[in-house]
Protein backbone atom coordinates (compact mmCIF):
# COMPACT_ATOMS: atom_id res chain seq x y z
CA UNK A 1 0.00 0.00 0.00
CA UNK A 2 1.37 3.36 -1.03
CA UNK A 3 1.61 5.92 1.74
CA UNK A 4 0.13 9.36 1.41
CA UNK A 5 3.57 10.96 1.54
CA UNK A 6 4.82 8.72 -1.27
CA UNK A 7 1.70 9.34 -3.31
CA UNK A 8 2.22 13.11 -3.20
CA UNK A 9 5.94 12.68 -3.88
CA UNK A 10 5.39 10.50 -6.93
CA UNK A 11 2.62 12.75 -8.23
CA UNK A 12 4.87 15.80 -8.06
CA UNK A 13 7.69 13.88 -9.75
CA UNK A 14 5.30 12.78 -12.47
CA UNK A 15 4.11 16.34 -13.07
CA UNK A 16 7.72 17.54 -13.21
CA UNK A 17 8.60 14.90 -15.79
CA UNK A 18 5.61 15.80 -17.95
CA UNK A 19 6.33 19.50 -17.63
CA UNK A 20 9.94 19.33 -18.84
CA UNK A 21 9.36 18.50 -22.51
CA UNK A 22 6.61 21.14 -22.67
CA UNK A 23 9.03 23.84 -21.57
CA UNK A 24 11.56 22.57 -24.09
CA UNK A 25 9.03 23.10 -26.88
CA UNK A 26 8.45 26.64 -25.65
CA UNK A 27 12.17 27.42 -25.68
CA UNK A 28 12.69 26.34 -29.28
CA UNK A 29 9.45 27.71 -30.69
CA UNK A 30 9.99 27.06 -34.43
CA UNK A 31 8.03 30.07 -35.63
CA UNK A 32 9.93 32.44 -33.35
CA UNK A 33 13.20 30.90 -34.45
CA UNK A 34 12.29 31.33 -38.08
CA UNK A 35 11.24 34.93 -37.58
CA UNK A 36 14.40 35.84 -35.71
CA UNK A 37 16.60 34.44 -38.47
CA UNK A 38 15.59 37.02 -41.07
CA UNK A 39 17.57 40.26 -41.32
CA UNK A 40 14.53 42.39 -40.60
CA UNK A 41 11.03 41.21 -39.97
CA UNK A 42 8.62 41.40 -42.88
CA UNK A 43 5.60 43.64 -42.31
CA UNK A 44 3.06 43.56 -45.12
CA UNK A 45 1.45 46.89 -45.82
CA UNK A 46 -0.98 48.08 -48.42
CA UNK A 47 -1.31 51.37 -50.22
CA UNK A 48 -4.50 52.56 -51.89
CA UNK A 49 -4.29 55.54 -54.17
CA UNK A 50 -7.85 56.83 -54.30
CA UNK A 51 -6.90 59.40 -56.94
CA UNK A 52 -6.19 56.56 -59.35
CA UNK A 53 -9.25 54.38 -58.69
CA UNK A 54 -11.93 54.59 -61.40
CA UNK A 55 -14.31 52.09 -59.82
CA UNK A 56 -14.06 49.42 -62.52
CA UNK A 57 -14.48 46.60 -60.01
CA UNK A 58 -11.78 44.37 -61.52
CA UNK A 59 -10.17 44.03 -58.11
CA UNK A 60 -13.42 42.72 -56.60
CA UNK A 61 -13.87 40.16 -59.37
CA UNK A 62 -10.27 39.02 -59.17
CA UNK A 63 -10.53 38.65 -55.40
CA UNK A 64 -13.67 36.55 -55.64
CA UNK A 65 -12.08 34.25 -58.22
CA UNK A 66 -8.89 33.89 -56.27
CA UNK A 67 -10.40 33.28 -52.87
CA UNK A 68 -13.31 30.88 -53.47
CA UNK A 69 -16.02 33.46 -52.85
CA UNK A 70 -19.22 32.44 -54.68
CA UNK A 71 -19.78 34.95 -57.47
CA UNK A 72 -23.29 36.05 -56.66
CA UNK A 73 -23.26 36.51 -52.91
CA UNK A 74 -23.82 39.92 -51.36
CA UNK A 75 -20.58 40.10 -49.43
CA UNK A 76 -16.98 40.47 -50.45
CA UNK A 77 -13.44 40.40 -49.07
CA UNK A 78 -12.75 43.67 -50.82
CA UNK A 79 -15.07 46.29 -52.22
CA UNK A 80 -15.17 49.69 -53.87
CA UNK A 81 -17.22 52.57 -52.48
CA UNK A 82 -18.48 55.48 -54.50
CA UNK A 83 -18.90 58.88 -52.86
CA UNK A 84 -20.89 61.63 -54.53
CA UNK A 85 -21.10 65.14 -53.08
CA UNK A 86 -23.81 67.23 -54.63
CA UNK A 87 -23.79 71.00 -55.05
CA UNK A 88 -26.48 71.34 -52.37
CA UNK A 89 -24.13 69.80 -49.82
CA UNK A 90 -25.47 66.24 -49.69
CA UNK A 91 -23.11 63.30 -49.30
CA UNK A 92 -24.27 60.11 -50.97
CA UNK A 93 -22.40 56.85 -50.99
CA UNK A 94 -22.97 53.30 -52.16
CA UNK A 95 -21.28 50.07 -53.09
CA UNK A 96 -23.75 47.95 -55.07
CA UNK A 97 -22.64 44.30 -55.28
CA UNK A 98 -19.44 45.49 -53.59
CA UNK A 99 -18.68 47.48 -56.74
CA UNK A 100 -17.99 44.25 -58.59
CA UNK A 101 -19.68 45.31 -61.83
CA UNK A 102 -18.29 48.82 -61.86
CA UNK A 103 -20.24 52.04 -61.53
CA UNK A 104 -21.72 52.64 -64.95
CA UNK A 105 -24.71 54.81 -64.16
CA UNK A 106 -25.29 57.88 -62.05
CA UNK A 107 -27.85 56.09 -59.90
CA UNK A 108 -26.98 55.86 -56.25
CA UNK A 109 -28.26 52.81 -54.39
CA UNK A 110 -30.27 53.71 -51.29
CA UNK A 111 -31.08 50.19 -50.14
CA UNK A 112 -34.39 48.28 -50.17
CA UNK A 113 -34.49 48.47 -53.96
CA UNK A 114 -34.51 52.28 -54.07
CA UNK A 115 -32.20 54.46 -56.14
CA UNK A 116 -31.55 58.12 -56.56
CA UNK A 117 -30.61 59.62 -59.91
CA UNK A 118 -27.95 62.30 -59.75
CA UNK A 119 -27.42 64.54 -62.75
CA UNK A 120 -23.84 65.21 -63.74
CA UNK A 121 -24.30 68.96 -63.39
CA UNK A 122 -25.41 68.57 -59.77
CA UNK A 123 -22.20 66.86 -58.71
CA UNK A 124 -19.65 68.94 -56.82
CA UNK A 125 -17.16 66.13 -56.48
CA UNK A 126 -17.17 62.34 -56.71
CA UNK A 127 -14.56 59.66 -56.12
CA UNK A 128 -14.03 55.97 -55.43
CA UNK A 129 -12.50 54.36 -52.36
CA UNK A 130 -11.41 50.71 -52.44
CA UNK A 131 -11.65 48.92 -49.10
CA UNK A 132 -10.14 45.75 -47.73
CA UNK A 133 -8.99 44.29 -44.41
CA UNK A 134 -6.66 46.75 -42.69
CA UNK A 135 -4.52 43.96 -41.16
CA UNK A 136 -4.40 46.06 -37.99
CA UNK A 137 -1.33 46.11 -35.78
CA UNK A 138 -3.74 45.84 -32.86
CA UNK A 139 -6.58 43.77 -34.32
CA UNK A 140 -9.80 43.75 -32.27
CA UNK A 141 -10.99 40.66 -34.16
CA UNK A 142 -8.04 38.64 -32.89
CA UNK A 143 -8.60 39.95 -29.37
CA UNK A 144 -12.22 38.81 -29.22
CA UNK A 145 -11.97 35.39 -30.91
CA UNK A 146 -12.83 32.96 -28.08
CA UNK A 147 -11.00 30.00 -29.60
CA UNK A 148 -8.00 31.65 -31.25
CA UNK A 149 -9.24 30.68 -34.72
CA UNK A 150 -8.30 34.11 -35.99
CA UNK A 151 -4.71 35.10 -35.38
CA UNK A 152 -1.94 37.43 -36.45
CA UNK A 153 1.07 36.07 -38.28
CA UNK A 154 4.62 37.26 -37.60
CA UNK A 155 4.50 39.36 -40.76
CA UNK A 156 1.40 41.19 -39.61
CA UNK A 157 -1.39 39.54 -41.58
CA UNK A 158 -4.53 38.43 -39.73
CA UNK A 159 -5.69 34.99 -40.81
CA UNK A 160 -8.73 32.83 -40.06
CA UNK A 161 -8.61 29.09 -39.49
CA UNK A 162 -11.76 27.93 -41.24
CA UNK A 163 -11.54 24.52 -39.59
CA UNK A 164 -11.40 25.87 -36.05
CA UNK A 165 -13.78 28.85 -36.24
CA UNK A 166 -16.96 28.16 -34.25
CA UNK A 167 -18.92 30.86 -36.03
CA UNK A 168 -19.92 33.00 -33.06
CA UNK A 169 -19.61 36.22 -35.03
CA UNK A 170 -17.85 38.13 -32.25
CA UNK A 171 -15.01 39.09 -34.63
CA UNK A 172 -17.52 40.42 -37.14
CA UNK A 173 -19.01 42.60 -34.42
CA UNK A 174 -15.60 43.76 -33.20
CA UNK A 175 -14.26 44.93 -36.57
CA UNK A 176 -14.82 48.69 -36.96
CA UNK A 177 -14.29 48.42 -40.73
CA UNK A 178 -16.96 45.83 -41.48
CA UNK A 179 -14.60 43.65 -43.47
CA UNK A 180 -15.76 40.34 -42.04
CA UNK A 181 -18.70 38.11 -42.94
CA UNK A 182 -19.62 34.43 -42.78
CA UNK A 183 -18.49 32.38 -45.73
CA UNK A 184 -21.67 30.93 -47.25
CA UNK A 185 -20.04 27.54 -47.89
CA UNK A 186 -17.64 27.07 -44.97
CA UNK A 187 -19.83 28.91 -42.44
CA UNK A 188 -16.72 30.35 -40.86
CA UNK A 189 -15.61 33.96 -40.49
CA UNK A 190 -14.18 35.23 -43.75
CA UNK A 191 -12.14 38.27 -44.67
CA UNK A 192 -9.32 39.59 -46.83
CA UNK A 193 -5.94 38.08 -45.93
CA UNK A 194 -3.82 40.03 -48.43
CA UNK A 195 -3.87 36.79 -50.51
CA UNK A 196 -1.44 35.33 -48.01
CA UNK A 197 -0.96 32.23 -50.16
CA UNK A 198 0.33 34.50 -52.94
CA UNK A 199 2.37 37.15 -51.15
CA UNK A 200 4.35 34.57 -49.21
CA UNK A 201 5.42 33.12 -52.56
CA UNK A 202 6.57 36.44 -53.92
CA UNK A 203 3.41 37.14 -55.92
CA UNK A 204 1.16 40.20 -55.73
CA UNK A 205 -2.34 39.95 -54.30
CA UNK A 206 -5.09 39.18 -56.81
CA UNK A 207 -6.56 42.70 -56.52
CA UNK A 208 -3.20 44.42 -56.96
CA UNK A 209 -2.51 42.33 -60.04
CA UNK A 210 -5.97 43.00 -61.48
CA UNK A 211 -5.96 46.77 -60.98
CA UNK A 212 -5.27 48.37 -64.40
CA UNK A 213 -4.50 51.78 -62.89
CA UNK A 214 -2.09 50.95 -60.11
CA UNK A 215 -4.49 52.18 -57.45
CA UNK A 216 -3.56 49.26 -55.23
CA UNK A 217 -0.05 48.36 -54.09
CA UNK A 218 1.28 45.86 -51.61
CA UNK A 219 4.74 45.62 -50.14
CA UNK A 220 6.97 44.97 -47.18
CA UNK A 221 6.93 48.29 -45.38
CA UNK A 222 9.98 47.33 -43.32
CA UNK A 223 12.08 47.09 -46.48
CA UNK A 224 13.83 50.42 -47.15
CA UNK A 225 13.82 49.72 -50.90
CA UNK A 226 10.14 48.87 -51.10
CA UNK A 227 7.98 51.35 -52.97
CA UNK A 228 4.99 51.07 -50.63
CA UNK A 229 7.20 51.59 -47.62
CA UNK A 230 8.88 54.58 -49.24
CA UNK A 231 5.57 56.29 -50.08
CA UNK A 232 4.19 55.71 -46.57
CA UNK A 233 7.36 57.13 -45.04
CA UNK A 234 7.88 60.10 -47.34
CA UNK A 235 4.46 61.17 -48.56
CA UNK A 236 1.21 62.32 -46.98
CA UNK A 237 -0.95 59.28 -46.33
CA UNK A 238 -3.76 58.52 -43.91
CA UNK A 239 -5.58 55.54 -42.48
CA UNK A 240 -9.24 54.75 -41.83
CA UNK A 241 -10.86 55.22 -38.39
CA UNK A 242 -7.68 55.60 -36.38
CA UNK A 243 -9.78 56.65 -33.36
CA UNK A 244 -10.32 52.98 -32.55
CA UNK A 245 -6.65 52.45 -31.82
CA UNK A 246 -6.42 49.50 -34.16
CA UNK A 247 -3.32 50.83 -36.00
CA UNK A 248 -4.44 49.87 -39.50
CA UNK A 249 -1.79 48.93 -42.05
CA UNK A 250 -3.72 49.88 -45.17
CA UNK A 251 -2.67 53.41 -46.08
CA UNK A 252 -4.61 55.79 -48.27
CA UNK A 253 -3.52 58.57 -50.56
CA UNK A 254 -6.01 61.33 -51.25
CA UNK A 255 -8.54 60.31 -48.63
CA UNK A 256 -11.41 62.78 -48.25
CA UNK A 257 -13.10 63.60 -44.94
CA UNK A 258 -16.42 62.20 -46.17
CA UNK A 259 -14.99 58.69 -46.33
CA UNK A 260 -16.45 56.36 -43.74
Amino acid sequence: MISRRDFIKYSLQGIAVIAVPLTAIEIINPSKLFASKGAKKIRWGFLVDTEKCVGCGFCVKACQNENEIPYDINASRTWVERYVLTKDGKVLADSPKAGRDGFITGRIELGQGKYQDIKNEDIEKAFFVPKLCNQCENPPCVQVCPVGATYQTEDGVVLVDRKWCIGCGYCIMACPYGVRFFHPVYHAAEKCNFCYHRITKGLKTACVQACPFGARLIGNINDPNDEVGRIIRTERVSVLKDEFGTKPQVYYRGLSKEVR
Binding site: N74, D94, G111, Q112, G178, F181
Partner: peptide, 22 residues
Amino acid sequence: MVHGEIWTLKELFVYPNEYIYW
Protein backbone atom coordinates in the same frame (compact mmCIF):
# COMPACT_ATOMS: atom_id res chain seq x y z
CA MET B 1 -26.94 33.71 -49.41
CA VAL B 2 -24.74 35.18 -46.72
CA HIS B 3 -25.69 34.50 -43.11
CA GLY B 4 -27.98 37.27 -41.89
CA GLU B 5 -29.02 38.48 -45.33
CA ILE B 6 -32.43 36.88 -45.14
CA TRP B 7 -33.58 38.90 -42.12
CA THR B 8 -31.70 42.14 -42.72
CA LEU B 9 -33.13 45.17 -44.46
CA LYS B 10 -30.52 47.74 -45.42
CA GLU B 11 -31.18 51.43 -45.86
CA LEU B 12 -28.86 54.13 -47.22
CA PHE B 13 -25.10 53.57 -47.08
CA VAL B 14 -24.18 50.31 -45.36
CA TYR B 15 -20.94 48.39 -45.92
CA PRO B 16 -21.48 45.37 -48.21
CA ASN B 17 -20.60 42.83 -45.52
CA GLU B 18 -22.78 44.26 -42.79
CA TYR B 19 -25.85 42.33 -41.72
CA ILE B 20 -27.67 41.66 -38.47
CA TYR B 21 -25.33 38.85 -37.44
CA TRP B 22 -26.47 38.73 -33.84
